[in-house]
Design a protein around this nucleic acid. Structure first.
Ligand code: ZN
Ligand code: ZN
Ligand code: ZN
Ligand code: ZN
Lengths: 163, 163
DNA sequence: GCTCATATTGTTATAATATAACATTTCTAT
DNA sequence: ATAGAAATGTTATATTATAACAATATGAGC
């Protein structure tokens, strides 16, 4: 099993480019319009691997001269979430790019409380235990959100806490 | 395995009483003070099995003549959460009573999007898959929040959707 | 009981997040 | 071209949460 965290020195421009390319494909296949605003918001969300708040994104839009009232950003985020290109991290009120766009899945994340990095992990392994619990109560499962908080390897090294 | 959902006709006054009694014990053992406000807020949180918003709780306090500015309720909730008596449901911005007070655990819930009931389930089964993922990335896991949304058995019956 | 340190509560103001409602523009299909 | 639909602009407001400081209550030690 390989780590869901990328090395801090990775070439992030590739992450961005991959995400934007995937978004084009996904939106085409959904017959959805990835307009300039939506595309730019997706790019901003991908400025790193840490979830960003709506108003942080909005601020950047503003500095670029775009129109930017709250609805602008919330609409774009809503669209991107619907297309499966962005996840909302409820415990942070923040948004992060999805790294499995196109595949239908829920958000399952390891979130470092030091550097803010949110690493998306496959959600399949979670469904075993959860759906057992659900079946016990005849609960019809719709979606599962998992937000696991802790400290990433890089941050443990930085604070001299590696085991 | 028994259902984590209680029957709709269950004697809920027992739920409340059990929760308040447990709170007394837990707070005593923590040498923490379950003041009248805090106790009353806990009771209000337990008015059912659906998470309630801070301002809903506040409104009730108001009708009872208590002081009730936002800090009143947020402080009480913060205290109750610290004592492990209440969980915050991030995806709903709402608060619900813990039914395993005293035991150290994270919140793991099945949430019905129809009636709002949130059933707390054991989190142990979740730790297997999650900690495997965490280990793969040398991630030091601190806590895991699971909010699974779907439809409870009662609501499926009511809408004629039982399988 | 009195006194001090601390914890709790009161109070006012404001921050941070998100949505409602309606006008205008742009796109798309015919 | 034109009409319907989708997207965006704009203004206002709702919802959730915290900051900052004052006043009060509590509990431990004297
Ligand atoms: Zn990257
Ligand atoms: Zn980190
Ligand atoms: Zn009950
Ligand atoms: Zn239900």
């Amino acid at each position: 099993m390989t780590s869901p965290f990328l090395h801090k020195g990775h070439d992030h421009s590739t992450c961005i480019q991959t995400a934007l390319d995937a978004a084009d494909v996904v939106c085409q296949s959904h017959k959805a319009r990835l307009t300039p605003i939506r595309r730019r918001v997706l790019e901003l969300v991908w400025q790193g691997h840490s979830p960003l708040g709506a108003y942080e994104l909005l601020k950047t839009l503003k500095t670029e001269g775009h129109n930017s009232a709250p609805p602008t950003i919330y609409r774009a985020l809503e669209f991107l979430i619907q297309q499966g290109l962005v996840h909302r991290i409820a415990s942070l009120n923040a948004y992060v790019g999805c790294n499995r766009p196109g595949e239908h899945h829920d958000g399952t994340f390891l979130i470092c409380h030091v550097c803010g990095t949110a690493a998306e992990i496959p959600d399949n392994p979670m469904w075993g235990p959860i759906s057992e619990m659900a079946q016990a109560g005849n609960f019809r499962l719709s979606h599962v959100n998992v937000e696991a908080v802790g400290e990433c390897a890089d941050c443990q090294r930085a604070t001299g806490q590696e085991s």
